[in-house]
Design a protein around this nucleic acid. Structure first.
Lengths: 206, 206
DNA sequence: TTGACATGTGACCGTTCGTTCACTATAATG
DNA sequence: CATTATAGTGAACGAACGGTCACATGTCAA
């Protein structure tokens, strides 16, 4: 019927692969969820593996387009409270955006089977956030909001615990409220530890 | 032949499940890796799923026996350097112990499919280490090695980044040396931030 | 109107899956 | 020594898998 069937198949593949894994997904169930029979799929993809490769292409392109380049850097916070607020907004977004949640789950499941998934997983879970906050923290040190320190080390110390809480939300969604509270508590603790004395005083003056 | 075939099957299952996942593993290949044919497996387990359940039982019991109770707490470090050293030894162990590495990989793959795997994953990746270091840090604060602070928050801030680096080792084993160096650098940075002034002085006096 | 192309279908293919079972070999037991 | 339990085998099973193909339908350009 529609010309967007190819995209609908990819969406269904992301849905099923992120639940059952590549090996645990069968094409009959996948196409049935779209109201098609399995043979219809082969009008759009040569094989199950080609779906997988196309999905990975898409995920890699999506990541590059949305988080890959420095131009997508969020504005550098102008206060410690703003850092906390920005962090909360980012985490709220990433744990509620359906596509990104499914992408992370898929990467968790397939990271040991496929080299491209492996590389993308490291970007998603580790280097991506760290590099982003390295730049932000360097700027905040210049602005004397954060104490002078190794910005990459602080970025890692800041983002890794948050990553772990995001994983918790993916794994046990019912714990999301608790996890969000912990993100905020951790973020506030972080700015209390590494914020400059000057900025700390300005905070409490409010 | 041997009476330990059941255990050998479980070991092979851990090996294959942690590589290809439950759905991606087939019994022919599993038993063949032990020099058996598939039907032999059914002398020891009723089904593939029973292997999975037995393996999970074993993993849960193993965790409880080795990390579950307070009696297995490592000795509380008596200096900041000792905290760094103890951390390094623990991480070295956990990223090189074959069984534990495979267990973590398996949990990463299956955490979204099985509720017991889900719960065990949270213990392995988050609460286990955090609770352990909450106790350690509380004791170190009493001993005036660490600044007075919320020990649970510090434990989380300490163990979560280390967890992320352990995951990196699991995912990309060739990066293990780099990851270990980052664990040590992070640990040293942590004690520099949260160690008491008194103890910092004692460190530099050496 | 006709032909070409894209999309979807149902029947079918060969393979692999998990599982069963009659049977054999071995070792322990009485 | 006969017996019984245990561990392993090879052939076979039905079901489910990924994949193919002749065919039906709809769309649109010539």
């Amino acid at each position: 019927m529609a010309k967007d069937t190819k995209e609908r198949i990819l969406a269904a593949a992301l849905e099923m692969f992120s639940r059952y894994g590549y090996a645990g997904t069968n094409i009959r169930a996948l196409t049935a969820s779209l109201g098609l029979v399995k043979s219809s799929m082969y009008r759009h993809f040569e094989s199950k593996e080609e779906i997988w490769n196309a999905l990975l292409d898409e995920m890699i392109a999506y990541y590059a387009a949305h988080f890959g380049s420095p131009e997508h850097l969020p504005p550098v916070p102008e206060s410690l409270d703003e850092l906390v607020g920005m962090t909360m907004r980012m985490v709220e977004f990433t744990v509620h955006d359906d596509r990104i949640v499914k992408t992370r789950k898929l990467l968790q499941i397939e990271q040991f089977r496929d080299d491209r998934a492996r590389a993308l997983a490291t970007k998603h879970f580790l280097t991506g956030l760290t590099e982003m906050f390295t730049r932000i923290f360097a700027a905040m040190m210049d602005a004397e909001l954060l104490c002078r320190d190794d910005p990459a080390m602080l970025a890692f110390a800041y983002t890794a615990p948050i990553s772990e809480l995001i994983h918790l939300c993916d794994r046990e969604p019912e714990k999301t409220p608790e996890a969000m509270a912990r993100v905020e508590a951790f973020s506030r603790h972080f700015v209390k530890t590494y914020g400059t004395k000057k900025e700390q005083g300005r905070r409490e003056a409010r």
